[in-house]
Computed example of a mutant assay.
Amino acid sequence: MGEVLFGVDDMANLRFAISPLWETVASLRVVADPGRHAVHLPWIKQALALRQDRALTGRTTPLHALVGRDGAVRSFLTPPPRCPLAEMEEELAALAALPAESVRAGLEAAGRRTALTGFEQRLAEDPGRVLPELAQAVLAWWQVGVRPYWPRIRAVLEADVAHRTRQLAEDGIGEVFAHLHPALQWRGDRLVSADLPTGELALDGGGITLAPSAFALRCHLLAGREGQVGAPPCAVYPSRAVGTLWERRDAVGDGLARLLGRSRAQVFAHASSPSTTTRLAARTGLSLGAVSQHLAVLRDAGLVTSHRYRREVHYTASDLGNALLDRAR
């Protein structure tokens, strides 16, 4: 049983993040054990076909060596995300710059459970030289296995974050933790779960990052190690609505298309999860200008709402809009 102890300052430093690095690494476990991840079968079929590419297999061999024959992800391979909406390049740079002590400590812990692979032994001997090789292996799998599907994966994760932040504002931190995952329990000033590493982790005022995951089956704690400045611990938890991830979202009902027009209906259907104008244009094949015009009409009709995060404006179906979409489906 593991516990994460919160102080007063930690309550104020709760944050959310989305980690493309974590999703990329976790996706390999899904491919390795499809039976436990039936919800992802449409994607798994595509990923298994990619695994037949010998050139790709060669480029990703270091990554497979670290995901482990026992299905465990080496702890240093997924350092805590440092910002809410990190880009893959940022996270790979952080991976390549990990302190040698952290890497060796992670491999030493892994070696107590299973024998280290040849690549892991090379990595333990010279982390500074071998880590960039590992980062390139992660990048190779990301580019073909995850990035083509990232807009829809990220949309599901962003929808989860939007739900949790609204819950935090309305009901408080206790309710957020109470509904993250059945395996997690909030007990006064601590988060308790059998999924967390055994022992007690005191946050010491730095707070914690919560990261939803499309590929996680249980909760994981990514704890920053000595030398990883600016990386508070991160609790990864299974995202809401993963069952909708691989639904065909380009199809709209004839009734909705007749009511709104087919192009506008497509934009509306894709706005069932938070999306920017750019992402909606990519998903529908429409121009940015056309998407903006359709969104303006939908917003004026009360069918979509918008909210700004940093430099991006996210559009999502309103309660009225969702009711209409559910009826149309």
Rank of each mutant, 00 (worst) to 15 (best):
L85C: 07
L85T: 10
L85Y: 09
E87F: 09
E87H: 15
E87A: 11
E89V: 14
E89K: 11
E90W: 05
E91T: 05
E91L: 07
E91W: 00
A93W: 05
A94W: 01
A94P: 04
L95C: 10
A96W: 00
A96F: 01
P99A: 11
P99L: 07
A100M: 04
E101R: 15
S102V: 12
S102W: 02
V103R: 01
V103E: 03
V103G: 01
V103P: 00
R104D: 07
A105R: 12
A105T: 14
A105P: 02
A105Q: 11
A105N: 11
G106M: 01
G106K: 06
E108A: 15
A109G: 09
A109S: 11
A109I: 10
A110S: 13
A110L: 06
A110P: 00
A110K: 00
G111Y: 04
G111H: 08
G111E: 08
R112K: 14
R112F: 07
R113G: 04
R113N: 11
R113S: 15
T114A: 15
T114Y: 01
A115G: 12
A115Y: 06
L116S: 09
T117D: 10
G118Y: 07
G118D: 15
G118H: 14
F119E: 14
E120K: 03
E120F: 00
Q121F: 05
Q121V: 15
R122F: 00
R122S: 14
L123F: 01
A124V: 02
